[in-house]
Simulated scan of single mutants.
Amino acid sequence: MFQKVITTDDLDSINIAVIQALQELGIATIQHAKYCDEAFLKIKKAQMDAEPFDLLISDLSFKTDHRNEKLQSGEELIRAVKKEQPNLKILVFSIEDKNHRIKNLIEVEGVNGYVLKGRNSIPELKKAIKSIYAKDTIFVSPTIANQIGDKSLLEIENYDIELLKSLSKGFTQDEIGLQFKNNAIAPCGSSSIEKRINKLKIFFKANNNAHLIAITKDLGLI
């Protein structure tokens, strides 16, 4: 079992519950942090002291307060930690259930597990920790595993996501084309963008652009 674990959440009640679960698993050293910067500094110091953490358990959303934090979200913490300690196992414990965000964390950011917070999430968290340690495989809450494994969603590319995000912000096709050109996103021609939007409307069976945005928001793509 993991011997040194750090948990990051800005709610005391969650930190206490997670720490208790870790103690029940027999983990020897447990530390916690309420801020992403605090967690990163602890991970960095442990690495410098040649006593690195084995596992990071982190939420994604952190409320801002009087402190000026460099790392303001779980994603930012994960990216910073991956640069500092690439082999550190990372388990996300969050209420966030948007498919695309979860898929991105697993496929792009390289997290080792994702547990959805809920009524019975602590037993599931313990199961995830055991699974990641013993099998060295990715663990995803069963309630969302089927959704992010939906083959139809796998056909949606990052280009489509950027296009949908721009549409949701009210940009016209010409404005999106200019934005894509400035950010080296291709294709950026008005004709290509129009064809892609029509393809997405057919794919999602949307009647118009507003309907398309509503559907993709419900699916958690944007």
Rank of each mutant, 00 (worst) to 15 (best):
D49P: 07
I27H: 03
A46M: 10
A17C: 14
I19V: 14
E51T: 14
L55A: 05
I16C: 13
I43K: 01
I30K: 04
A17V: 09
L60I: 08
A17S: 13
I14E: 09
V18Q: 01
E51Y: 15
F62L: 06
A50S: 15
T29K: 09
N15K: 15
I30S: 06
E24L: 15
L22R: 04
L56H: 00
I14F: 14
Y35T: 04
A33T: 06
L55T: 04
Q31H: 15
D54Y: 00
F62N: 01
M48F: 13
L55W: 02
K34H: 14
A21H: 02
M48Y: 10
K42L: 13
A39K: 00
Q23R: 12
E51A: 12
V18T: 07
L22N: 06
D49G: 10
F53Y: 14
G26R: 04
A39E: 01
D59I: 07
Q47K: 10
D37W: 06
D59R: 03
I27V: 11
I14K: 05
D59V: 03
E51K: 15
D37M: 08
T29P: 05
M48P: 07
Q47R: 10
H32D: 12
I16T: 15
A21G: 09
A28H: 12
F62K: 02
A28M: 12
L56N: 01
L56Y: 01
S61C: 15
C36K: 03
L25T: 00
D59G: 05
G26S: 06
C36Y: 03
A21R: 01
L60F: 06
H32Q: 12
A33Y: 02
L56P: 00
L56R: 00
F62E: 02
T29N: 14
K44V: 06
P52R: 08
I19G: 04
Q47Y: 09
P52K: 10
F62M: 03
N15D: 09
I14Q: 11
L55Q: 04
N15Q: 15
S61D: 15
E38C: 08
E51W: 14
L60K: 04
S58I: 00
L25W: 02
G26W: 01
E24G: 15
D37R: 04
E51M: 13
D54G: 05
H32T: 15
